[in-house]
Design a protein around this nucleic acid. Sequence first.
DNA 1: ACGCGACAGTACCGATCAGTACTACGACAG
DNA 2: CTGTCGTAGTACTGATCGGTACTGTCGCGT
Lengths: 203, 203
Amino acid sequence: MTETLSPSQQATRAKILDTAARLFYERGVHAVGVNEIVAEAKASKLSLYRYFPSKERLVAAMLTEHSDRIHDWLVRKTADAPAGPERVLSVFDLLIDWFAQPGYHGCTVVNTVTDTRADPAIAAIARRHLARYRRLLESRIQEAGLTDAPRLARQLLLLIEGASVVVSIEDTTDAGADARAAADRLLAAARRQGGHPTARSSG
Amino acid sequence: MTETLSPSQQATRAKILDTAARLFYERGVHAVGVNEIVAEAKASKLSLYRYFPSKERLVAAMLTEHSDRIHDWLVRKTADAPAGPERVLSVFDLLIDWFAQPGYHGCTVVNTVTDTRADPAIAAIARRHLARYRRLLESRIQEAGLTDAPRLARQLLLLIEGASVVVSIEDTTDAGADARAAADRLLAAARRQGGHPTARSSG
DNA sequence: ACGCGACAGTACCGATCAGTACTACGACAG
DNA sequence: CTGTCGTAGTACTGATCGGTACTGTCGCGT
């Protein structure tokens, strides 16, 4: 990705990438021009186009780096929590704090894939992001000794993405706590059912 | 809203509105210009700007009309389902079919509010949409004789919005069924706990 | 001191944008 | 027949877009 770049070149590239990430998140990919990015980053368009062949590729690089950073952060933070269901729910505790931060208005991955609907590269990054997210949840659920981890992981991911969207639209950030409570219920139900993945609770 | 317009004027206005809704949904608000809308609708820019003072207001009118239509559709369809938890879950059955339709790529309200991040009018429409959605869920839950309807409604809404987002990103449409299964579990848990909204299942 | 390359800054290009002005046509009323 | 109004179609404006070209300058290795 960043082959044979001097430290100062790395710094320039990172400065552009960080500024682009911030502006894209605040106002959307289409609403931010490359002129504004380089002005804000105190760089030149020459530099931008040296490290990124196009705006599209800059967006893709930003999103890849963001996805990697979020994933690493979640893996690291949730590993600290005590084993058991609390470790699964620690994901929600992290997200509750995140959603409550001022200036939060949705998941960068979801927002970007909405902004750039026609770009298959962005869509692929988003799919990979969700797959990694789901694998992390699945691991934490298995570590808690719960069965039917794949299905639970898919359900918890829906709660997380739903809370992210709802928080970004509404005035309050209660949705994070609601998602945690729902996840708690789902985990408790799975524990109650033990090793019988096929439920008969429907209807 | 549409005061003293002749039938032919109403038709022209509706034609522009429908075409705009379709194009905005397919490719995003920023990626579709007013020239393309009027060309596709076989109308003129004069007509567009007679009925909508700006593109922003056209987007707002489109989203209001869409939100109203979706809400009416959900109220009408779910009223047909047999009373009880099945009526609550009928919301998810409708959405599973909807998500599986070809060309589905997310909720129009969520996509539009992401596209037009700076527009407070769009944000207000989106908030109203979620509030109505939640009220509908709450009514159906109460009709099923379940307690703690407000909390359950909030949780089910997270599953719905999460499934919408995940389906729009992934290759499969399984998330709809996952959301229904999770909702089923949450409703079953609420039935089991009866009138005791405070659970002690955490940890 | 010298030279090279990355740098910021700016001017520019063709395209496209939202919005306005103006044409000519068609329907319908008096 | 005539006047009015909504219509489609087109040309236009000023601004902004992504991307390129070209300044001159600064930093660093030799």
